[in-house]
Design a protein around this nucleic acid. Structure first.
Lengths: 231, 231
DNA sequence: ACCTGAACACCGTTCAAGT
DNA sequence: ACCTGAACACCGTTCAAGT
């Protein structure tokens, strides 16, 4: 039933036949595959957020019955895991970056990580609660290797990585959720102004409206790296 | 129907009458109230996690029909908001802390914040996606005031606060989710060992097993504060 | 090997109704 | 003012069955 009325495509095909339809939509749904499922899940998550991903709606977008998904995938959790990891693939930076020294490399890696997550605002808050997929492990390995080569002692390595991880995750999760609700944020600052006897300091600094997320991210990251840098 | 079979209490009351029952359980369900709803929601969240909070189950625990909740509360979202803020009440520290100077105060405030969230592991990952309730605003105001008094320039205040916020949130969310899945984590490190050609560095440092979360948190925080401290 | 619909045990919430 | 059950439009997933 869900499959039968799956979107504009089936309606259209009854009226216009195959040739016109093939311009507007895939001429026939290609067979289900893990790649197609994951890619469509990412699209659905981008469009509707975490709450919008439903096995039934996902199947709908794929032009299949809801239960067909379960042949390719164990359950909904797995869809999340795969969508998340697929979004975090790391493409090696151009050579120019590598010649900047370890600190430039680390900054590049972490800014790229953050940017990848911000391109898919659902991903950041999902990441800490899911298994670490191969793309995430690859990023951690690369970060670890770079720090190690730069001279961070083995005993300090885990502290360094977790500090950076924590900071990047916190920054990205916060930014992604604040982004989703600009209006709410403005309304909240409004409310602050009305309650300014209670919260004079953050009202004065307009904390909730400050918009230089990228600059703030970079500054805090620099402070961390100052501390973590091998003497 | 849900209300009728709400837990041990109703079974028991049929057999033992009022007097014994009043020792074991509330003699009669007190009337619904926002306080009781929020407190019960926190208990349910502590016991079952975010996914375990259901309007129907919450009503069950309260001995009421599911729909009764909607007289006190607009919707489920509001239950989350209220439960979250209720868990983040800040009790002022003893005098001894205040005499430590601004840095000791800030560390105390942030460690208390983190500890409050870790006592309710569902809270940290929820916080960034919800409205900022009065208890959260109070903590931000206090932090802001302390930094300002310590000499942080107004222009640097927001960067300082967001850096600390990001770090604390990231650290707490990560710690809370890793805590929930010790077995998974061990299994993941197992897997790393099997794949050690791909991830030699993080395999060697046993990144996923490192357990000194508190120490690592403190160190990263110190680095941030070094950078943020007014010269 | 791959896909399907019916069915089950759940959800949040609207509504009209009870006291 | 406060609480209720029936009902609606959803969920994820099992299962037995189709090709």
């Amino acid at each position: 039933m869900a499959a039968k009325r799956s979107g504009a495509q089936s309606k259209r095909s009854q009226r216009t036949g195959v040739s016109l339809q093939s311009v507007q939509e895939a001429p026939r749904e290609p067979p289900l595959s893990l790649e197609r499922i994951v890619a469509t899940a990412v699209g659905l998550l981008d469009a509707e957020g975490v709450g919008g991903l439903t096995m039934r709606r996902l199947a709908d977008r794929l032009g299949s019955g809801a239960m067909s998904l379960y042949w390719h995938v164990g359950n909904k959790e797995e869809v999340f895991d795969l969508a998340l990891d697929s979004v975090l693939e790391y493409r090696a930076p151009p050579q120019t970056v590598e010649s900047q020294g370890w600190r430039g490399e680390v900054v590049h890696m972490l800014e790229d990580w953050r940017a990848s997550m911000l391109r898919h605002p659902w991903s950041a808050s999902l990441l800490p609660r899911r298994a670490l997929g191969p793309n995430i492990l690859r990023r951690l390995e690369l970060l670890s290797k770079t720090l190690s080569r730069a001279g961070v002692a083995d005993a300090d390595l885990n502290v360094a990585i977790w500090s950076l991880w924590n900071y990047v995750m916190g920054a990205t999760i916060t930014r992604a959720s604040f982004d989703l609700s600009d209006d709410d944020r403005a309304a909240a600052q409004e409310r602050l102004t009305r309650l300014s006897e209670h919260y004079p300091t953050i009202e004065r600094s307009r904390l909730l409206l400050d918009n230089d997320w990228d600059g703030a991210f970079r500054k805090g990251l620099d402070f961390l790296l100052d501390g973590l840098a091998p003497r």
